[in-house]
């Protein structure tokens, strides 16, 4: 009995995992399947895998007007820039909220958190009109700033709790030793914040990488991102499942790899220092 329980647990876990990964497995299998097998039932499991879908997606040999590889590059630029922006403005804000006692601090903290509720479906039209008036449509900033703002409340709150977990005595001691405030933050605080920053950056990157509505509405071709391009594989004439799943696999892969590599930091960072 003692030995049976862990075995059952393992079995259950692997079974749930199989179920969870089923759609992803389907995606990858379809991407490497020859085109006329992708819809056949019973599902074909034994076939000679083909890379042709990946080749045509990444060399622009599809009916889409843009090479999907270029869209991935746009996505990469937007994601990296918006994540950096979120961290650049988020880290000082988190530090200020955690360490500096000033009037209105609490109200500011609550307001920052409450901006997270703004649905993109509501803000997209005003932002669209604004961007048209400022001639910002189809430029990088028009996606970078909103994406940074989408993840900023979460970034600030995750980092604020991480900072609060750093004993203040360490900072005091550092300053007594003659370090300037800025140097102290750089030398003492930032290294301790790395798990929190990694977790916040990863979540922020996932949000930006996968965003669809703003990307569809605010870009044309120069800044069009991968999720908008993915939509182009389905049309009135049917869906190009091979190309769609190949493009989707390529899109999902970097996020998956990053999640795999950074998962331990992610778990640490997600604790929000929430213990009461």
């Amino acid at each position: 009995m003692r030995k049976l329980a862990p075995l059952l647990l393992r079995l259950a876990l692997w079974a749930i995992l199989a179920l969870t990964l089923f759609p992803i497995v389907w995606m990858v299998v379809t991407a490497v399947k020859p085109a006329d097998m992708s819809q056949t039932l019973p599902p074909v499991w034994v076939f000679r895998p083909t890379m042709s879908n990946f080749v045509s997606v990444l060399t622009g040999k599809t009916y889409a007007s843009q090479n999907f590889g270029v869209l991935l590059l746009h996505s990469l630029i937007v994601t990296v820039a918006s994540t950096l922006l979120a961290l650049l403005v988020g880290v000082p804000a988190a530090y200020g909220l955690a360490r500096v006692r000033f009037r209105g601090r609490r109200a500011a903290a609550t307001w920052i958190l409450s901006t997270i509720m703004f649905p993109p479906a509501v803000s997209v039209v005003p932002i669209f009109i604004l961007s048209a008036r400022l001639s910002l449509t189809d430029t990088y900033p028009v996606l970078i700033v909103p994406y940074a703002a989408f993840s900023l409340p979460m970034v600030i709150w995750m980092l604020r709790s991480s900072i609060k977990q750093i004993p203040f005595e360490i900072e005091e001691a550092a300053m007594v030793d003659g370090l300037s405030q800025l140097a102290m933050v750089r030398v003492i605080v930032l290294p301790l914040l790395v798990p929190g920053i990694v977790a916040a950056a990863l979540l922020s990157a996932i949000l930006s990488w996968n965003e669809f509505l703003f990307a569809l509405t605010l870009t044309r071709s120069k800044v069009q991102t991968a999720p908008v391009g993915l939509n182009e594989f389905t049309s009135m004439y049917g869906t190009q499942w091979g190309q769609l799943t190949a493009a989707a696999t390529v899109t999902v892969a970097p996020i998956l790899v990053m999640t795999l590599v950074l998962r331990r930091r992610l778990v640490e960072g997600l604790s929000f220092g929430a213990v009461k």
Partner: peptide
């Protein structure tokens, strides 16, 4: 297992909905 379980988190909603 932990690593594999978090994979769905990274799939764009547009893609997962099409797959579903």
């Amino acid at each position: 297992l932990t690593a594999l379980f978090i994979l769905p988190l990274g799939v764009a909603p547009v893609v997962s909905a099409l797959i579903f």
